[in-house]
Amino acid sequence: MNAQTVAKPLVKPARPWFSAGPTAKRPGWSLAGLPDDLMGRGIRAPEVVERFAHGLRLTREVLAPPADYVLLYTPGSDTGAVEAALWGMLGERPVQVVAYENFGLTWLADVKTHLGLEPEALTAPWGELPDLSRVDPKKDVVFPWNGTTSGVRVPDGDWIADDREGLTICDATSAAFAQPLPWAKLDVTTFSFQKALGGEAGIGVMVLSPRAVARLDAYRPDRPVPKLLRLTDGKGFDRALGEGVAINTFSVLTIEDWIDALDWARGIGGIEALIARTDANYAALAAWVERTDWIDFLPARPEIRSTTSVCLKFVDPRVTGLDEAGQKAFVKRFKALLEGEGAVYDMEPHRNAPPGLRLWCGCTVETADVIAATPWLEWAFETAVASSEIS
């Protein structure tokens, strides 16, 4: 295959958005479709609090955690939600951190450097998982369910003990609403609007099991917890948070956008339909990878490959023969070609990940657009290979 044999495709994706966060808006989304009657109202106004509470009720209805789990909003998207759990819950018992991509490594560094704890690190190279049999049920464990930056996910929750003594703190931001989550195995589950359903950024969600609530009720860390991360009042867990009360001032427009996404999700069939849409998108992209000789999955093992943040690596010697700087320059050229045509946006990997491609295949993406994107990827690859920038 060469540049002369790959013609520029004629058909573009109708919605060429493949960013891993913020992700594509739901099909048919329109800013004009969001209500604005509460814009400018106080965050504590009863009507505003009720609207926030409505968003939590819808989240529960679509995501379907157990009835005795508590949902609440946090500032700072998924990062804020994870940090609130780390700062407010860790330290009672030893902790392990499962780190196999950028964000797991971030949580590991924060637990060690900022909380001053001595976590046991369970690490693996990019594209792999650590040995999960090393997870100790007597210890707290922090882990990403799905590695947004590596394209790796845990295959299931079988490695988590039912009779565990520690808490499981799961960063599920690129798995929620797209992959099955075994709620009985999860004590703290976090995600953000802008990944889960293509919402606007800035607000995170925590889903707390009764065991997590009990930890907040009984445990007081010996470190000061910043107000933005504080989940407790003078009596223990602040129950008002589970009723839609905000820790700080949130954007009402962002909440309305989240409610819009949830209404769409409920309308198409709920969590089962969302997972099915994700699986169909992944299958379409995987079929293309299997028949294309210059690209492959970053994770070698199929059972640990993410179905949302699909990370790919170059296997063509014309690219792999370049040094790291040359490969990154190639990705930059690749991206510029696609975006210059308005064909595929934001397909580059995370800045700390190996050079390659990353395409979001979550539930707000249309399968037809995944299929339409692949000829453009082929065109951009051969055009970038032929360009003088990498000659």
Rank of each mutant, 00 (worst) to 15 (best):
M1V: 15
K8M: 01
V11C: 07
P13V: 03
P13N: 08
T23R: 05
A24C: 04
L31C: 07
G33W: 10
L34I: 05
L34N: 01
D36T: 15
D36A: 14
L38W: 10
M39F: 15
R44N: 13
A53M: 11
H54K: 14
G55S: 11
L56P: 12
A64I: 10
P66R: 11
D68M: 08
V70Y: 09
L72N: 02
P75D: 09
G80L: 05
V82S: 11
E83Y: 07
P94S: 08
Q96P: 04
V97Y: 09
V97I: 04
A99V: 09
A99M: 04
F103G: 04
G104K: 10
G104F: 06
K112C: 09
L115Q: 00
P119S: 13
E120M: 14
G127N: 01
G127R: 06
P130T: 10
S133K: 15
P137F: 08
K138I: 05
K139Q: 15
P144K: 03
P144C: 09
P144S: 04
W145L: 15
G147F: 06
G147L: 11
T148V: 15
G151I: 03
G151A: 12
D158K: 14
W159G: 06
I160S: 00
A161V: 10
A161M: 05
G166L: 05
D171L: 12
S174A: 13
A175K: 08
P180N: 13
P182W: 14
D187T: 08
S192I: 02
A196K: 07
A196C: 07
G198E: 00
E200L: 07
E200D: 10
E200W: 00
I203F: 03
S209K: 06
P210A: 03
R211H: 06
A212I: 04
D217G: 03
P221C: 00
R223C: 07
P224C: 05
P224G: 07
P226A: 11
P226E: 07
K227A: 13
R230K: 10
D233W: 10
G234Q: 10
G234V: 13
K235T: 13
G236K: 03
D238F: 01
A246T: 12
I247L: 06
D257M: 12
W258F: 02
W264K: 01
G269T: 14
G270E: 13
R277P: 02
T278D: 08
T292W: 07
P299Q: 09
R301E: 13
S306W: 01
T307D: 01
S309E: 11
V310D: 01
C311Y: 14
K313D: 05
F314A: 01
V315I: 12
V315F: 11
V315L: 10
D316G: 13
P317M: 11
A325L: 14
K328C: 05
K328M: 11
A329W: 03
K335E: 07
E339W: 03
M347H: 10
P349D: 10
R351M: 12
R351W: 15
L357E: 04
R358A: 11
I371Q: 08
A373R: 07
W376S: 00
E378A: 01
A380W: 06
E382W: 05
A384L: 02
A386E: 12
S387F: 07
E389N: 09
E389W: 13
E389Y: 12
